[in-house]
Design a protein around this nucleic acid. Structure first.
Length: 279
DNA sequence: CCTGAAACCTGTCTGC
DNA sequence: TGCAGACAGGTTTCAG
């Protein structure tokens, strides 16, 4: 599921309230329940459970596709991978009974106010870390695409350094942090660039076009609370604005040519053969 | 450096 | 209806 806009939507809901749940900012942790052991990447379960109690959620933030809770002493970091989601709900009812979890819930943090934060993840790829320095986790990430300090010239220079095809490069989190398969296809279509175009062949103007497409598509995604497809993720509307993703055989919104689907780096890739020509 | 394949997992959909 | 196979929003690791 979750690419930058979905993750950002979840982060804002945790920080400020929303998505059917209250804000967790300022809440105090009391414990945790780990239902699928591999979800906890670091540290050991024993150590984790020792560190959690009494820490207060100071803030909730995002770096790339990672979600982090800045706690009193540590950072609690989530990666949702393919099918993860987070929700905030009551842990106990008015009689003091524990409320049932669903079969896909993998990891639960409980607060001292009777609420819990639940990490639900059907495919079990998602991971959680508790670390004192978040940079140990974020070290290999590239720049934030919506950071106003990222200039067209910066992107141009970075593109010049790679001979890879554009699509796999955009998916590489060390090149740029936050794009996934949906938004990469949407970005390349808006920028009218072919997914297989070698990165270093882009002109400085191409790089500027690409950066503005990246920012426009991501902002559009955030504005729509992300994209909900199939049974994964909830509440987003961006799926109604797709230009190419999952529109194989349908007319291009620019020129009416039929959208094609190819496989690039093991990922389904959708593009318009007319608007996005290989140069 | 780059590409492709496989692995980690479960759920859904399609076609026979 | 049942079942095999393909496919899915991500990332890591390994072979060539």
């Amino acid at each position: 599921m979750p690419e930058l806009p979905e993750v950002e939507t979840i982060v804002r809901a945790l920080r400020l309230g929303g998505r059917d749940g209250p804000s967790i900012t300022g809440w105090t942790l009391v414990g945790a329940r780990i239902l699928w052991g591999r979800t906890l990447a670091e540290p050991s379960e024993i150590e984790f459970l020792q560190h959690i109690p009494d820490q207060v959620v100071q803030d909730v933030g995002r770096r790339g596709k990672f979600i982090f809770l800045r706690l009193s002493r540590d950072y609690l970091i989530f990666h949702l991978r393919m099918s993860g989601d987070l929700r905030v709900e009551r842990d106990v009812n008015e009689h003091g009974d524990y409320l049932e979890l669903s079969s896909h819930d993998r990891f639960v943090i409980t607060f001292n106010n009777g609420y819990r934060l639940v990490f639900c993840d059907a495919r079990k790829f998602g991971r959680v870390w508790l670390v004192d320095n978040p940079e140990t986790i974020f070290a290999s990430l590239g720049p934030e695409p919506l950071d106003s300090n990222l200039t067209p010239r910066d992107l141009y220079r970075r593109l010049q350094q790679h001979h890879r095809q554009l699509k796999p490069l955009l998916l590489d989190q060390s090149f740029l942090a936050g794009l996934g398969n949906i938004y990469s296809d949407e970005v390349l279509h808006l920028a009218r660039l072919h997914p297989l175009q070698p990165a270093h062949t882009l002109s400085e103007d191409d790089a500027a076009t690409l950066l503005s497409a990246i920012q426009k598509v991501l902002e559009e995604g955030i504005h729509n609370n992300g994209a909900s497809i199939d049974w994964v993720y909830r509440g987003g509307n961006f799926q109604n604005n797709f230009r190419v993703y999952q529109r194989t055989g349908k007319p291009c919104v620019n020129c009416g040519s039929y959208i094609e689907r190819i496989t690039v780096g093991q990922r389904g890739t959708h593009y318009c053969p007319h608007c996005q020509s290989l140069r």
